[in-house]
Computed example of a mutant assay.
Amino acid sequence: MKLTRLLIMSSVIAITTTLISGCATSGNASPQAKREVVQSMRAQTLKDLYVQKPDVQNQIANSAGYAVFDNANVNVIFASFGGGYGVVKNNRTGKSTYMNMGEAGLGLGLGVKDFNVVMVFHSEAALNRFIDHGWAFGGNADAAAKHKEDGGALAAEAIADDVTVYSLTETGLALQAVLKGTKFWVDTELN
């Protein structure tokens, strides 16, 4: 009985989080206004990352392309849910591809976290595979206790399959060790 209530509560939180995190690219705004919100998020995230890791700017400039996503995540005991939006930039063609993301996972965790992810694609094949297929699986273990400039967070950096991934925590309080799957897909309205 308690497990059933917990699962229902987790589902409600997940749906609410997904709706809230998707607000920037949903609603009555024009597609152009939505693209501007995503591009603004992209620019601010890169600026923040370059302050923390200045060498990433050169890495991105010399890459096949990169992606920047804003994501909100909720962890309740054994379940983790999240959603967000972002953009992939092909450095060779200059083309931007707007995408959405959703994730779910199992593991021990508790908390809510708003974070941004920057992915650097070191090959054209890795970039195209991400846009065309968009799946990412993996484990995640982190701790975050941050609100705006207060608190601290452990930012992750991972390298796999010609992609380097950086995670920057914006706000939140979370402690988690989760195995999760993330699905990225092209936003048909914004492309």
Rank of each mutant, 00 (worst) to 15 (best):
K2Y: 11
K2V: 10
T4Y: 14
R5M: 10
S10F: 05
S11R: 07
V12E: 10
I13C: 15
I13D: 04
A14Y: 05
A14E: 04
A14R: 04
S21V: 05
S21N: 10
G22T: 08
C23I: 07
A24D: 11
G27K: 14
N28C: 06
N28W: 10
K34S: 02
R35E: 03
E36I: 12
V37Q: 10
V38D: 08
M41F: 06
T45R: 07
T45N: 11
L46R: 07
K47C: 01
K47P: 00
K47L: 01
L49V: 00
Q52H: 13
V56G: 00
N58M: 05
Q59I: 07
S63A: 12
S63D: 01
G65W: 02
Y66P: 00
A72I: 06
V74E: 01
N75I: 02
F78Q: 10
F78A: 12
S80H: 05
G82E: 05
G84T: 05
G84C: 11
Y85E: 02
G86I: 00
V88T: 03
V88H: 01
V88D: 00
V88C: 02
K89Q: 11
N90Y: 03
T93M: 08
S96R: 12
T97K: 02
M101Q: 10
G102R: 11
E103H: 12
G105A: 07
L108E: 06
L108W: 13
L110P: 06
V112H: 14
K113L: 15
V117Y: 05
V118H: 00
V118D: 01
M119N: 08
V120N: 02
H122G: 09
S123C: 14
S123H: 15
E124H: 09
A125L: 11
A126N: 10
H133I: 06
G134C: 11
W135E: 13
W135T: 12
G138L: 13
N140A: 14
A141P: 03
D142S: 15
A143F: 14
A145V: 06
K146V: 08
K148V: 13
D150Y: 14
G151W: 04
A153L: 06
A153Q: 03
L154W: 15
A155T: 15
A158D: 04
I159N: 12
A160W: 09
A160Y: 12
D162F: 11
T164F: 10
T164C: 10
L168G: 09
L168M: 15
L168H: 06
T169F: 08
G172N: 12
L173H: 06
A174L: 08
A174R: 06
A174P: 00
L175K: 08
Q176T: 09
Q176S: 07
K180F: 11
D187I: 05
E189T: 03
L190P: 05
L190V: 09
N191A: 08
